Amino acid sequence: MPTVNEALQAAAIGHAIDLLHLSNAEVRKIIALLNSADAELRAQLILAIASLGVESFTVTHMNSVLVSVLETNKSIYAAIQETMVESVIDLAKYEIGYQKALFTEVIPQQVRVTVSLGSVTLDQTRQIAMSRPFQGKLLKEWLDNLEVNRAARIRDGVRMGMVEGQTTEQIVRRVMGIKSEGYADGLLNRSRQDIESVVRTAISHTAQGARDAFYRANDDLIAEVSWLSTLDNKTSVDCRLRDRLRYTNDTHEPVGHKVPWKAGPGRIHWCCRSTSTPILKGYEELRLSKGLPESTRASMDGQVPKSTTYGEWLIEQSAARQDQILGPNRGKLLREGGLTHDQFYNDRGKFLTLDQLRERDAASFAKAGI
């Protein structure tokens, strides 16, 4: 039977994967919202460019005819900001509730009678979501910057097209890109990439902030915090270095090493997927030994759990859980095809398609019967 700290570590790894799925869904929602204005933006852009004459073109004139285009751009970012604010506040509330439910589930009832769980207020959850900067700025500031940068790309694309004597169609394509290329050839595609980074980082930042707050509220129960990194081809140097390192719960001072916590897991760099797990004090340190059953004392040993990598954790999960994480075909390749989770990525950390995987290792597909 696993100890409480082992159960918390296993739950942290699984929860980090669920949060990644949440992040993916949030990115799709926000990108779809951003794209929803494309038709209107394109129509307004065509009208604006048509009213610009090559001979009479000036930047001042361009700015005046682009007003409606830039207003549409501003309004869609206002909608994105409203959606993101709601999402991160909901996430902070959820994460606090999840942590409390997890602690309630894994800590023996005899211990919870003596050591009550601390809680985090609703106002604190809002502070976590809205008043703490990540990568140097608040969420609102990042989204405001993205709107301004996208407006600048629109102006730059139109100005360059006019100077080069391009047609209206060519300028619109330059700015917007074309559907057959997935709009990847347009100047505005960078805006999609930028907002994806902000959304993913806001999600991980908020979740970790909520965890930190809950851990601090239970400082009498938690001895230390351990950094958990998702170890695969996409793991950053910073996160590989810190994986399984321990820090004090209150001030995050290094324990047994000199590697600084910096911004912490989920926040140390853009799109960070690292998380943390608490290491609870032992029953003796909590002064709970009197009258506790042997099984309860054993579960509350206070020991740092044995290191488990993401790949090792994944192998131990049920087939249903593996399929939920990887998809049914990759799940079957993991169980029956002889592939390990890291083989689902290329050397740049990009998730390979099934066709790319089949081309790389057809034998594994045959072995798995796919």
Rank of each mutant, 00 (worst) to 15 (best):
F57K: 02
V85T: 12
L70I: 12
G311S: 12
S64W: 09
V304F: 12
S51A: 14
Y247S: 05
V148W: 13
L47T: 14
L280C: 03
G182Q: 10
Y215K: 06
S289M: 03
Q356N: 13
T83Q: 14
A92H: 01
R211V: 08
S236H: 08
A50D: 15
S36H: 06
E285C: 04
M176W: 01
D144L: 09
R190V: 08
A92C: 05
W261Y: 07
G256S: 12
Y215D: 00
I76T: 15
T251D: 01
T104N: 05
L352Y: 13
V27P: 08
N24H: 14
S295T: 10
T125C: 09
I49E: 03
Q343F: 15
S87K: 11
L188T: 03
R348V: 13
F344S: 05
S119E: 14
G209E: 12
W261H: 06
I222M: 08
V106C: 10
Y310F: 11
A11Y: 05
V69P: 00
I279K: 02
A368S: 06
D323T: 01
R360D: 07
V4C: 13
P254W: 09
I17D: 14
M300L: 07
R159Q: 04
A12C: 07
K140Y: 04
G302L: 02
A184I: 15
Q303E: 15
P293V: 00
L22W: 05
L91G: 02
K140I: 14
N346E: 10
L117G: 11
T248D: 01
V65W: 02
K140S: 15
N5H: 00
A78Y: 13
D238M: 10
G157E: 06
